[in-house]
Nucleic acid binder design. Sequence first.
DNA 1: CGCACCACAATTTTT
DNA 2: TTGTGGTGCG
Length: 801
Amino acid sequence: MGSMMDFTKRYCDARRSLIRAKFKNLNDRQVEAVLATEGPLLILAGAGSGKTTVLINRIANLLRYGRASDSDELPPGADEAALRRLQAGGPEAEALAALDPVAPWRILAITFTNKAADELKARLERMLGESANDIWACTFHSACVRILRRDGEKLGYGDNFTIYDTGDSQSLIKRILKDLELDEKQFPPRSVMSEISRSKDARIGPAEYLRQAKLSNDYRRTRIGQVYEEYARRLFAANALDFDDLIACTVTLLLEHEDVRSYWQRRFQYVLVDEYQDTNHLQYLLASTLAGGWGNICVVGDDDQSIYKFRGATIENILSFEQQYKSCRTIRLEQNYRSTAHILNAANAVIRNNLGRKGKELWTDAGPGDPIELHCADNENEEAQYVASAILTNFGQGANWRDHAVLYRMNAQSSQLEFAFKRSGIPYRIVGGTRFFDRAEVKDMLSYLNVIASPADDLRLSRIVNMPPRGIGERSMELAGELARQEHCSLYEILSRADRYPEIKRAAPKMKLFIQLMEELRAFSQVNPPDALYDELLEKTGYLRMLETSEEDKDQTRAENVKELKSSILGYMKDSGDTSLDGYLANIALYTDLDSYDRDADSVVMMTMHSAKGLEFPSVFIVGMEETIFPGMRAIGEPEEMEEERRLCYVAITRAKRHLTLLCARQRMLFGRTTTNRCSRFVDEIPEEDIRKQLPKGYGYTEKRSEFAYGWRERQGEPSFAYRPPQAREQTVKPVIRKAPTPPPTASFAVGDRVRHKAFGEGRIAKLSPMGNDFLVEISFDKIGSKKLMLRAAALHMEKL
DNA sequence: CGCACCACAATTTTT
DNA sequence: TTGTGGTGCG
């Protein structure tokens, strides 16, 4: 008997060491996470700790070796001879080391963004080849869409349901508020929406919500309940689901339909959830229900990077995972492969001030690197100019534009930076902000396509019925809406027989005309692919003509966007090989701008700190490090909110690989108001030895000292072990008072002059033309060609030869 | 009905 | 400062 146990142990040990050897490029903690295949597993993965790598390798392990690495079970037919062959290695050993290798389609890996899902898929395919395509690597929402397309009719939805994005939902809410004669001041659509969203998250339906509201005699909640009820009714009537519904309905489907539940539970042998700190209650329910069959649920997250509480994410999911799953194993990944020590020290020090967290300390063996820099500017304009200047310096020393990111708390902060970059000839891109698919003109065109695909979509029909103006006014549509409700039919049907209703007789001919147009387009769409339909649409509706003939600059941009949408259609048809309109619309509903963020384009990236999560850049600038900006006004005096802001700060800091520059402005104009703010408390939380401060002393502020600020190339011979602070910071003690404002720049430059620019090299001034109180200068550079710059800004970075 | 004009408010936003 | 939504007139 003893020898049997002994044999088992020897076999399993041999098996483990073989498998272990396959992952020798990972660190010990990572390997542990990869090999722990069975049961619930919580991976606390700090920023830059290689969690995606772990996820990929974990899946690879499952596919290749099944649960062999985590089990003491012998495969059938294991004997001494097999053990010897296992120990000998070679191709045979692979099979002997495996224990029920997992079929790819039994693995579900859930992420939050399409981008993360795509990256996961791409890396899996690179590592595992073709078979990776059968792994379900998708977002929460797209997983739900797939489940609902299959079984949604059990909840009464057609399988061609449409998805309402946040904008659609908001219009619908506004519509309902009007219909119920509720004042938007008293019932702000935003808060009504989040109330509804929270209820959905708690799986409280309209009926239950209303019951509770009435019970507690709460007028406000009762009215919101009525909005909720109507909202649900209209969504359902339009065969539409909003983002919350996608998850909520899937959960309901799983919980209430035994057959559906057991189908999926049997199927998904391993469930992995990425960014678990961002899940809400519904998503937790979804994941744990799907994993409920086999019980193999692995969640990866970082409680310190939970920055979406305002969207319903509950950090409690990750904080309480160990209570939910008693047999859970927890693994911490704390070795950071991204940043140098000064940056990590700062991040650790800042986040340490939070109370509600699991506790983690990032470390690196990469060496100290350069200290963080703090630059305090006089105002937001100079702050932007400083960033531009620093980036130009780096570019001049061989860095790429794309190595730089500028992060801010609010989108509204981006404009000064844009100006500075434009003036200085720095190519930049703004990620986020108003998204392409959220632009009014794009939504209009998509609404047309949606109505063509499903005429019962009242919301989108109302959006386009008078766009461009067709003489179908709001009053007529309101009446038509009442009729539709009376007759339990869609607006489209009412409009198509408008002449039968005396109430809307006046507008009836125009409505008929509109319906006729839509019918033609519908007929066209039956026999033509979406791209052709789109051309037809632009032509027949006159929408594009309306924009192109407009005098306004903005309408030209809008026209561009409308045309740009066609490339999205073509792109979809090309990528998917699908030529159905329904397919395109379904795809687009879950698509965002962030997905199109193209890391190959060489330009500086600007975005909010929120959007930066998951990304990394050699050089990062965080602007607006001021009290009331970051942390924002609303967080001050609110401990919970402040912790979320601090997590955001942690996220922002840990984006930087090599260089981190923090900026604040003593005075800042925001929303047309000038305010004076103290430097952010987060700056004070960074240890002195990790940061070099250029603080204002008395009147001025310290001179830029670019000579030490940016040594781009790695310095040789620096100690790469235990980091010691450099000499005391005398720099802040003896400030250099800044010179007077830049003199008028024209005096020193003229057309024909040869100049040397610190970033663009040598060139000749080709043109000088006045512009505002500055000059637009066109310089033909020898190496990079012609560039247009604003002279005042350019003069700072170039000299006459 | 459509347009021009004024008041108003404005974190963050993976789907 | 920007964008949006409401009002009032032609």
